[in-house]
Write a protein that binds this DNA or RNA. Structure first.
Lengths: 186, 186
DNA sequence: ACCTGAACACCGTTCAAGT
DNA sequence: ACCTGAACACCGTTCAAGT
């Protein structure tokens, strides 16, 4: 989160600097607004420089998505290990709130574009994140696979519909309260 | 669906021809693979020609998304008016199957990119589609708003998770059966 | 080993000019 | 009125060359 001007990139760790700047641009401009040339410019380096650290724009996006899944896993594990009264509801709420506060990163994590070129790192990160989720759900409650999938679908769908502004809030209605109500309705 | 070579575009209705070709390319290549120049080439016209009928690439995509919502509405109304035993389940199944058999069109319909530049036509088409959905659900069953939103979220999430290949099918498992089971689990 | 400058093959978009 | 050709300002990516 440092926009340091006394930049050590010139023979420092450009890779990390690119990732940090990319995350900021991503969240502000969306995936389409994250150009490699812009990114290089933002970091004060030539247009070709990023290619020393990432094979392509897709590889850079994949790296971002992977850190997204890691942050997601961390958030889910944090709630799970806090032993909430209703683990399922608590995790669902965390899922949706993560999506809302990391909108473009969340969308990138599920980008079909990225998945299409089958980069192994992304698949692994995603699997790890969902394994965590499955274990917690499967461990704390005796939910069968179907119920677990249904809960996942509901929470994921709610995240995306809210993200896309598809669910209209009523006057004076609180987003968080609505989330709790919808998750609460089995 | 006609790839006629005796093309009447030269002073015919290029707009329609562009839309038809675009739908085919979209479903085959995805949104990112649908370039205006490629499209013009596919239709046998100069790169600048589409601009007589669409202000921009975004305008073309919006037109595609609008027809997507129209087809979606039609599909939902068709099931609804067939008076199925369990209207909620029947509509849910139709929803998911529509998404699966129109993968890239469905994704385009919910593209945040498109929504961001707030084209009125798209918003109207989307609202019309969901109004239909809400009326049918609200009319046939006494589901409250929360339950309706929860059902919508579940069905939408299931669509996207399946589309993204995030839900792994077990050996010999049928997609349609899984959909029915998940939707069935209240 | 890491970065730059210049180039290549593309884009979307504009605009004068053709019919 | 509708379409073309050529141009503009961009891309992502490559590669020789610099340090």
């Amino acid at each position: 989160m440092s926009t340091s001007l006394n930049s050590p990139y010139h023979h420092g760790n450009l890779r990390q600097a690119l990732l940090e700047a990319a995350l900021i641009i991503l969240e502000k401009e969306g995936e389409a607004g994250l150009g490699l040339r812009d990114l290089a410019r933002a970091v004060g380096v030539s247009a070709a420089a990023p290619y020393r650290h990432f094979d392509s724009r897709a590889a850079l996006l994949e790296a971002l998505a992977v850190t997204g899944f890691q942050r997601f896993s961390a958030a889910m594990e944090a709630v799970a290990s806090s032993n909430p009264a209703d683990p399922m509801a608590a995790m669902g709420k965390t899922y949706v709130l993560f999506a809302l506060s990391n909108a473009n990163l969340f969308r990138l994590m599920f980008s079909p574009q990225l998945k299409k070129d089958g980069r192994p790192g992304l698949r692994m990160a995603a699997d790890a994140a969902f394994d965590t989720l499955r274990h917690v759900v499967g461990g704390d409650m005796k939910t069968g696979r179907i119920k677990a999938l249904a809960a996942w679908a509901k929470v994921h769908g709610l995240s995306i519909l809210l993200l896309d502004g598809q669910i209209a809030l009523r006057a004076g209605e609180d987003t968080e309260a609505l989330i709790a109500e919808i998750i609460g309705s089995l």
